[in-house]
Design a protein around this nucleic acid. Structure first.
Lengths: 216, 216
DNA sequence: TAAAATTTTTAGATTGGTCTAAAATTATTA
DNA sequence: TAATAATTTTAGACCAATCTAAAAATTTTA
């Protein structure tokens, strides 16, 4: 099996790959809070194991096998987050760090049983899709509130920023997953947006509108 | 915080301390499947951290702080075992290895919430007591079936051998935690015992009788 | 109680993951 | 397109945990 550290690298590469085709050494270093030199060392190791495609100076992509492992880590992370929120009553802004540890528990049996125990949820507490035991999932198509026009409505279904400060802010504003919202006003000057949610007016900044995701 | 490995050493020393007052290097090496030289290195490290009392060649004992950590690991191990059996339908012989991984998840919040979620169980699936969040527990007084005399009866409440082969054997014989048994015959020659359990006769060897624990 | 056997520790090496500093490569821009 | 800037890799070191082989201490036993 792979070490903790290898799993963290694969997961980081997976997440970065969703943004840009090929992933750079510096991007990985930033996302793992480590140094470029350490990343280069690990990339060689992962390339030896054929978990990534790596050519010096050219950035990396995951191989099929590497992606499979990354998806299994993502699956575990999201299922544990679901468990923590739904069964142990954690808040959605409190679960990330604990899930970062739990995602490295190796037993596949454990995670598949946990999945069944919770009724095979399709999305985690932040709206991110949970891969099934074969690594398959369907992401629903989401757009940021900032892309809506006047009178558009939709259902809060995800976040782009997973930081606890953002999640806590949304919680305070009662803008949580599943809530129905409607755009009632858009401020041309600062691009802030006024929403109607459960018959209450909520005023959010451009930043917040950019990081709050809606399905129609 | 402490590393995985340090936690495993403290736990091993804790368990060995229940048998003998002071614990030897070789005992630890045997219980962790490692070499005496490695143990000596780690003992120095744990002594520096004041988690054990250690004088060269003289064996070790846990300090109050070391015992506190060991008990928190034992608490986590046993609560996770309970969770695996009671919530995820694992068999009692399947949970040890997974719990060995889960016991190192550091969040105290997690384990205390898990404890509440399960209704604060007092004993794990093998009958071992679960320390509470302050490290306190009361072990019930258990005696091996081999110490009983004719016509004694009691309730199966623990095992001395935790190996899966022993647990699977007991499962097959339907000699599981909570079952009421009565000694109906003792064979003087080989010290095997015949029990009555739920109106069925069960014949067990001296070895099994030694490792099966009863409360009265 | 001295010799032999056992246990424990030390010395020195190895492996995985990390780092800093310097060199090599690639990208930018004047 | 040549100089400069940024990125990436290499070289060499360090730390934690482990090992083997040899030395030291303790225990056993004759």
């Amino acid at each position: 099996m792979n070490t903790f550290t290898e799993e963290n690298y694969l997961k980081a590469i997976y997440h970065l790959s969703l943004q840009s085709e090929s992933v750079s050494t510096n991007q990985i270093a930033a996302s793992l809070n480590t140094k470029a030199a350490s990343v280069t060392d690990m990339l060689k190791k992962l390339a030896d194991k054929e978990l990534i495609n790596y050519a010096k100076y050219q950035g990396v992509t995951l191989t099929a096998e590497g992606e499979k492992i990354a998806l299994s880590i993502v699956r575990k992370h999201r299922l544990w987050e679901y468990f923590l929120v739904e069964k142990l009553n954690f808040k959605w802004d409190e679960v990330h760090d604990v899930a970062e540890e739990l995602e490295h528990i190796s037993s596949k049996e454990l995670i598949d049983r946990l999945d069944d125990f919770m009724g095979n949820p399709k999305y985690d507490p932040h709206g991110d899709p949970i891969p099934d035991c074969n690594g398959l999932f369907k992401a629903h198509v989401l757009k940021p509130v900032s892309s809506l026009v006047l009178h558009d409505s939709g259902i809060i279904s995800g976040v782009r920023d997973h930081s606890s400060s953002f999640l806590q802010y949304l919680e305070k504003m009662q803008l949580t997953i599943g809530k129905k919202i409607k755009v009632t006003e858009i401020n041309d000057y600062d691009h802030s947006v006024i929403l109607n949610s459960e018959d209450k007016k909520v005023h959010i900044s451009r930043d917040v509108a950019n990081n709050l995701l809606i399905s129609l």
